[in-house]
Design a protein around this nucleic acid. Sequence first.
DNA 1: TAAGTTTGTGAAAGCGCTTCCTGCAGGGAA
DNA 2: TTCCCTGCAGGAAGCGCTTTCACAAACTTA
Lengths: 334, 334
Amino acid sequence: MPVTIKDVARRAGVAISTVSRVINNSGYVAGETRERVLRAVDDLKFVPSHMARSLVSRETKSIGLIMPDITNPFFPAIARGVEDAAKALGYTVVLCNTDDDLATEESYVKTLREKFIDGIVFVNVTSGNQEINSLLRDGMPVIALDRSQEVLEASAVLVDNVEGGYLATRYLLDRGHRLIAHISGPDYMSTSLDRRVGYRKALTEAGLEVAPGFLRRGDFRLEGGYREMKGLLSEGLRPTAVFAANDLMAIGAMQALEEVGLEVPTDVSVVGFDDITLASLVKPSLTTIRQPAYQMGQEAARLLVRRILRDEPRTEIILRGELVERNSVAPLPR
Amino acid sequence: MPVTIKDVARRAGVAISTVSRVINNSGYVAGETRERVLRAVDDLKFVPSHMARSLVSRETKSIGLIMPDITNPFFPAIARGVEDAAKALGYTVVLCNTDDDLATEESYVKTLREKFIDGIVFVNVTSGNQEINSLLRDGMPVIALDRSQEVLEASAVLVDNVEGGYLATRYLLDRGHRLIAHISGPDYMSTSLDRRVGYRKALTEAGLEVAPGFLRRGDFRLEGGYREMKGLLSEGLRPTAVFAANDLMAIGAMQALEEVGLEVPTDVSVVGFDDITLASLVKPSLTTIRQPAYQMGQEAARLLVRRILRDEPRTEIILRGELVERNSVAPLPR
DNA sequence: TAAGTTTGTGAAAGCGCTTCCTGCAGGGAA
DNA sequence: TTCCCTGCAGGAAGCGCTTTCACAAACTTA
């Protein structure tokens, strides 16, 4: 049923190889012959089969995008960035949600591997760099997004999370805060670790120490922020400011504060990280470190395609977060 | 470099066709031979080439997901639902963002068509049912999600938007409101139209008419809700309640109300539609009609795969929205 | 004019599979 | 014994392309 290159060849009265030359603009074809072929293509509404083409050329013009969960508000912008850049370069993207689950990740890698895909963007991989390194060894182009460099041999796109953490904390310090708590993410995520390092750095620089109980371990989810804030408070601790390692936790913390009758920012200031849409919509709106998520996605896709096309050496693109001032921080009266 | 079926055959000392039979579990193979082949597969870490297989079988085990914008908070849940269900059935999904742009949509359809994909889920297509119907004619399995049935010949998954609109309006009516404005979506979207119908129906049933100026045309985006609410107010109109056709617009409307010093719900009650994550996080939290987005995605993917596997007749799955009571509605004192 | 060189085209191999066809045993039924 | 299934395996065609390779005509160059 579908019209093939053979049909076109017959219709145009030429050989298959000539048609191939025309549609790929390769080799010598006389002007008049080209016309004839093009007309036949048009008449027959011929669309070359990607599958057949891929079988020969060994490339599928599609890439995999492996991320924890598209439902988490930080990821759609990344996905969109990847998709847009990929599309512009002639690639389509296959979406994979792993829920941070190693087995799922592996199963996806297995599916994508050697099959449909020319390369893979890993977002925020928490697990199995084994996987990735093994892919790399097999020559599969791979980009890690938002994942600390030391861990992987892959090219990467990341924001400077240490600087981001520093910026956030510094901002609070500059406004007179001294009792600054930090709700961080899980320890196995470099983003979490790095932001914490930035937090510490800013404190140290100001000649302060992390007060006991002021460093909390969250989970990057709203509930975690809520829980840790509650925990902090219930231990009788009373920071004047909180820096949460992402917006979701910051918002959770704000909910906890509100529940116990503390007002943000009057009683406690809060700074987040990411600048998800939500951040500007909550009340008070959240001061945060903006990650250029869309741009990160774009850069990752572009870098990946460059690796696919010509085997570029390992590259690292480091973007910077920027502080977005809103209404969740008040200067401490002195 | 990659190991092929040929290598396996050589290693196992059998013919290629025998290997094929083993890995596909088809035809007769003696137990001992099967063992030998399996061992060779294992030793060589053979992974069948999807491309080659697809070329013969004419199926790729992947589906396209065409939606306006993954960045819009209503869509990630759908995407996740599609992805999860597809994965469970052995399919991968290709993500396509169209921004409601006809040209983009067409270009994606062209890319997916006859090429990589076994079927397509269209979410909320606003344009070019031409496209879709032409796909259908060519026998491409297509599912429309969240799109009114009359428009298309495709199978569809939808929520009863008329009922949803009715439920929302009725809820306000029951609380004594009589001056209920409606901010609807664009006219070319059936979801928008249907919700409006539900709104009208509830009013009519209560013996009321839509007051002039109370029916506003939004765009399903936050800004549209804000703008229309401002417009309403600036015309000197003063509804006691507003039903917005989606949460984003409801939140925009709330911002507008706040800006002019009107309090929600004390001065004006607001009801939204969708129940995006945001709805429970804004202040006051938003009373809304919940759409089972994740489930819709799942159903769509399952329906699509069923259509792909055996050519099912046109089907329609209608899900129901449910009212989620939160804090943006107050009863009108009588 | 002889010997390249450039231009244009077709035949055929092959990408890695599936599937159809063929053939060969062995074991009942006639 | 003859015939015909049934179980098993190999050969080969073919899916729709790309890409040599060979060849022929037309042009250069010396």
